[in-house]
Design a protein around this nucleic acid. Structure first.
Length: 577
RNA sequence: GGGGGGUUAGCUCAGUUGGUUAGAGCAGAGCGCUCAUAACGCUUUGGUCACAGGUUCGAGUCCUGUACCCCCUACCA
């Protein structure tokens, strides 16, 4: 048994996430967590909402409530949605928690003690009307390069020139449109990442098994141009973790907060602390997951995230950890994802384009989404969501292959034998051949799951399901029953064992369906045990026994017809096209 | 400008350290079955592996160049 720490990128508090966000980190992380638990490993699967920063403040203003209230409400919404998607977090915390405040300040203190923080004076645009400093993106003005009038403070959309907000001609606030902006001197703390460059490089290079996507992004940031840049870790905002040192305001940093990107990843740790507290563990328990000198050496730590998050998880956060000179656990494997697009374009929150988590659940059960998203996970390149693909995938894989297997088996049995699993003859060559064929594919499936090769895993799982239909087709119990009832009964008994096996090995992908099938078999309380290759594989198919009763079951999946698919396509195409 | 990824059957994608007739699923065609959500099974038609060179006994797989697509480029999260 191994101890596995799994974190998925923290969803930002501002609004309900769409399918692209879901497949980008939380869903694949859940798949892996469920798999590892089933294998008997000790898993800590941690996530939290990322709550600080300007967008949260603005969203709260829009909703006419305080930022604290807004975040509390949205945390609840996101937590509920994650539960409805059967995301099996051991703890879903908040980056605004007391423990994160405490830990974030502690990290800053330790980094400062090691001489890795410096104070830098800079000038930033302040909006009198909005009463706040404006991040670059919240300033628009005329581009000094091409005279485009709506250039953003970070980049001109028209000529793609990189800009400083202070370069803009006639700058104005995106929020209030006020032109009453002035450059004000302000100081910020910078994390001197450049000093940690060699350590980071050595660490990155020691991780030989990382995916290319991860390593190439990390090295690019590390080596490109002047190398790794120092970055500020504080902001002039109200909402955030106050910059304090040992309980007192940090000199020169009064009324400032830590930058979200500094405190957010620390929430992986503080959420583990909060998890331990909620379980009434020993106060040092969380350290066994996070500090090598407290037992975390044998922990295997895997992070899941979309590719835009990779620089922060390969450089900034590790720099924060390494810079303390304490034995913090560094990530062992990063599973990065590309983007999910929607009908050939981008998912867009502002244009209401695409499908969001709450809408998705109003339309179909979570397993439909889990299955499509996981079998189309953007692993090697971007993937495109289309209703046509969704329809074909659900109808074929779930309804026809898996759903219909369960349906034909249970209905046939009900009509010929009733609700009791019949006995019949002993398994013969036909059954043992089927088992060994399953074992072969199952090994590939298991291997893909271990390596987190999600698409490969789905195709093998699907193949295993179809072996069930192949078996029934070969055995033809509907013919057999006319001449040899005992033989037909044997086929049924084996069929039910296949069904039980399917429900268990499919659980990481479609947990809700798995529960339905186990309930049908009266095996709801059986703890999920991943089939082992060490024991006799044949015995796995002896667990549904003669005389046991099953409950008739509704069709597991409804098909999506053409008109419904077309209708959905129209309904979700968005407001701007 | 710099960097990364991609381009393989109508569609979505696999193709391990270069090695014999390039694979899967879906869609298409034919046959079979009738237990089942007109579902299932079997068989089968599709590819000058983006293009042009090069290395090699041999390249989808390595090198160079070209074309097209997507993404990243730091104080947005």
């Amino acid at each position: 048994m191994q101890r596995i720490l799994i974190t998925s990128a923290l969803p930002y508090i501002n609004g309900i996430k769409h399918l692209g966000n879901l497949i980008g980190s939380q869903l694949p992380a859940d798949l892996y967590a469920r798999y590892m638990r089933a294998k008997g490993h000790e898993v800590a699967f941690i996530c939290a909402t990322d709550e600080h920063g300007t967008p949260a403040e603005l969203a709260a203003i829009e909703n006419k409530i305080s930022t604290e209230e807004y975040c509390s409400e949205m945390w609840k919404v996101q937590k509920d949605l994650s539960e409805q998607f059967f995301l099996s977090f051991d703890f879903f915390g908040r980056s605004s928690s007391a423990s994160n405040h405490e830990l974030t300040k502690l990290f800053a203190l330790n980094l400062d003690k090691n001489g890795l923080l410096k104070k830098v004076e800079e000038r930033q645009l302040y909006s009198g009307e909005d009463k706040r400093f404006l991040p670059d993106r919240y300033v628009i003005g005329t581009c000094p390069g091409c005279s485009y009038e709506r250039a953003r403070g970070d980049q001109c959309e028209n000529c793609t020139r990189q800009l400083e907000a202070s370069e803009l001609i006639n700058p104005r606030s995106v929020l209030s449109h006020s032109e009453d902006l002035e450059l004000i001197k302000t100081s910020h703390l910078y994390l001197m990442q450049s000093k940690l460059k060699d350590k980071l490089l050595a660490w990155i290079e020691s991780n030989k098994n990382w995916p290319i996507l991860t390593t190439s992004i990390a090295k690019k940031w590390l080596m490109d141009g002047e190398g790794l840049q120092d970055r500020s870790i504080t902001r002039d905002l109200d909402w955030g973790i106050p910059v304090e040192k040992e309980g007192r305001p940090w000199e020169g940093m009064e009324n400032k907060v830590f930058y979200v990107w500094f405190d957010a990843p620390i929430a992986y740790i503080s959420s583990t602390v909060d998890w331990a507290i909620s379980r009434k563990e020993h106060p040092d328990y969380w350290k066994s997951w996070w500090l090598d000198d407290h037992g975390a050496k044998d922990v295997h730590y895997v992070q899941f995230m979309a590719k835009d998050n990779i620089p922060f998880h390969t450089l900034s956060f590790p720099a924060t950890l390494l810079g303390t000179d304490q034995s913090w656990k560094l990530v062992d494997y990063i599973k990065g994802f590309n983007w999910l697009t929607y009908e050939g374009g981008k998912f867009s929150t502002s244009q209401k384009r695409g499908v969001f988590m709450n809408q998705a659940l109003d339309l179909f059960p979570s397993d439909y989404w889990r299955w499509w998203l996981l079998s189309n996970a953007p692993e090697s390149s971007d993937a495109d969501f289309t209703w046509k693909s969704f329809q074909a995938c659900i109808n074929k894989d779930l309804a026809d292959v898996l759903g219909n297997f369960v349906s034909r088996l249970t209905k046939f049995t009900l009509s010929k034998f009733g609700k009791t699993i019949p006995g019949g003859t002993q398994y013969s060559k036909e059954e043992y051949n089927t088992i060994s064929e399953i074992e072969k594919i199952f090994k590939r499936y298991d291997d893909a799951m271990t390596r987190i090769e999600i698409r490969k895993a789905t195709s093998n799982l699907r193949k295993i399901w179809s072996i069930g239909n192949e078996y029934l087709q070969r055995s033809q119990p509907w013919m057999m029953i006319k001449t040899d009832e005992a033989e037909a009964a044997k086929v049924i008994r084996f069929g039910f064992n296949l069904m039980f096996f399917f429900s268990e090995i499919s659980e990481p992908f479609i947990p809700e369906t798995s529960i339905k099938v186990k309930n049908c078999l009266g095996k709801l309380n059986n703890k999920l045990q991943w089939p082992s290759f060490k024991k006799d594989f044949n015995s796995i198919f002896e667990r549904v026994e003669t005389g046991e009763e099953f409950k008739p079951i509704e069709n597991l999946f409804k098909k999506i017809d053409d008109s419904q698919a077309l209708d959905l396509e129209k309904r979700f195409e968005g407001t701007a096209n």
